[in-house]
Simulated assay, not measured.
Amino acid sequence: MSWKTRHRSFYYQDAPEPADLDLSPSETALLVIDVQNTYLARPDRASVSPADRASYDAWTPFHERMQELVIPRTADLLQRFRRNGMECLFARIACQTKDGRDRSLSQKMPGWNNLLLPKDEHASQIVPELAPQGDEIVVTKTTDSALTGTNLRLILHNLGIKNVICTGIFTDQCVSSTVRSLADESLNVVVVEDCCAAGSHALHEQELAIINMIYCHVVSAEELIGMMRL
């Protein structure tokens, strides 16, 4: 099954196959979303209290997917884009203030989303394996969408970008919010399914079906490399 028929929701079960994607290198950019140190940091399981181990273990598939699949394949895409002189951009969550008073409401909600990530601290930096190189552009946001909370819209326009290839975390949160914002600006959006992850694989798959064929097209890294001859 190819990208043209995978990840179809109820709405698109009987829709015709989409046309081949036209991804001109000069008009296409790779966007890496929120792959930051804070999300990959993890203590040794032996140091976790028995009461917290169920939660710890529930996150294990996410960490395995990130280390074994998402980060290596995203690093490979970055290398291919750079080799072909194509734009590589990055988005990260970080607040300008130490106490996080400039964060959006969604990033102040109690629970898992309530992360304090001052811009200069280690936790808010992009992981070393995917670190920007040279003059590659990084936008810093206090929103889920990388477009809404930054000048990314203007940057893409100034670069002459019409197609945005999205990777990163979390599929059902910041990736999805960014994809929807980009689509609303009439940019062509492609999500690389094996370069993204959600807290659970079920959430990842569910969100891909929700956004596919209306806000973006969902492809694998191998399919993208083939269609762009990277």
Rank of each mutant, 00 (worst) to 15 (best):
A202Q: 13
Q125R: 11
R83W: 01
N37L: 13
D52K: 15
P25E: 07
L31N: 05
H63N: 01
L30E: 01
E222M: 05
N84D: 07
T171E: 03
A15V: 07
V175S: 03
H122A: 12
D102W: 04
V191W: 01
P132Y: 05
Q173F: 04
D20G: 09
D34F: 08
F10S: 11
R229N: 11
F10H: 14
R82Q: 11
T150L: 04
D34C: 12
E223V: 10
A19W: 00
L89M: 14
L159D: 00
V219S: 10
Q36M: 14
N158H: 09
E129V: 07
P50N: 04
E207P: 00
M1N: 11
I93T: 11
R229C: 09
L203A: 08
E185Q: 15
V192E: 09
I211M: 14
S145K: 00
L182N: 06
Q173W: 02
L30N: 09
D57G: 11
G226Q: 08
P110M: 07
E136L: 04
I126D: 10
I155P: 01
A197P: 07
G100T: 08
N158K: 13
H204S: 06
C196T: 13
A202C: 09
V190Q: 05
I211P: 02
L224W: 00
S24L: 12
V127N: 08
E121Q: 12
S176A: 15
A197K: 05
S124E: 06
A91G: 12
A146M: 13
E136I: 06
T167D: 00
S186C: 13
N37I: 11
E223L: 12
Q125E: 13
W3I: 10
